[in-house]
Design a protein around this nucleic acid. Sequence first.
DNA 1: TACCAGGAGAGCG
DNA 2: CGCTCTCATGGT
Length: 298
Amino acid sequence: MLASSERPTSAIAEQTFALTDYDLAATLSSGQAFRWRYQDGSWVGVVAGRWVRLTQQNTDLHAQTTGAPEDWSWLRNYLQLEIPLSQIIQTFPKDEVMTTAVQASRGLRLLKQDHWECLTSFILSSTKRIVQIQQCVESLGERFGAPLPVPPGFPSRSNFPSPHRLAECTESELRDCKLGFRAPYLLEAARRIAQGHLHLADLQNASIEYARNQLMTLPGVGPKVADCVLLFAYGFPNAFPVDVWIYKAIQQLYFPKRPATTRQLQQFTQTYFGPHSGYAQQYLFHYMRTKIGRTQAL
DNA sequence: TACCAGGAGAGCG
DNA sequence: CGCTCTCATGGT
């Protein structure tokens, strides 16, 4: 732990982007990324090894970071600013469920995250609430990540630790980050990647089927975790994570008479929601979690 | 107190 | 395959 006076600090660089159909708050709090903190009307996080502060004012996105970046493509890419949302929404099925879900949170977007950080986040996600996942990911960053340059007056932040760094940890050290039974999963996954048994970057150019199978060779990575990484980090447009929320929603809304089998449900999600089914899934998930969520089953 | 949380792995028939 | 149990931890 660095003392406050030793903390790396740096001057702020600023840039403004024009947003179209973009709800920054919904996007950063939707349970796809876990290192964003909301403070005084702004979102503070870490992207591509940089401290970032984002503020949305209508169609303006005000971005601040440290140092003097030559360009802002790293942020444009992460936020997927160039994606025409209206064209994607047009491909959704025009049923009442999807229409309601889109109207409820229009502007919700998919990010393009770092492969390893995303993979780690969702290995930790199993039977945890989003708040707990955030705490675990942040704890890993604080303990094992390299401190980043941060503007004066802001809390210190660290880069997310590499597979090599986490592979050096003991299981006990990881359990201290409240990982519980997921600790040995993450440790073994980090070791395999650090040792070169699996190259995460190479899967970016592979087919979704191959990438999915490769991810699922890692401990703690089943169908749901693999699909989350394929959607949130690799950007496969038709990756469709089926968690407990989506499972209940689809069963009750689309198979009201008798529940679909696993096979039928997989066939349904692969075809019914169209070529951007991953985006449709995110709208369904966000709607279920925020609007209906804790009050009643459906 | 008892129950559950954006699952996965292992052990059954 | 399809089902069930377990795993660690914190919050209602």
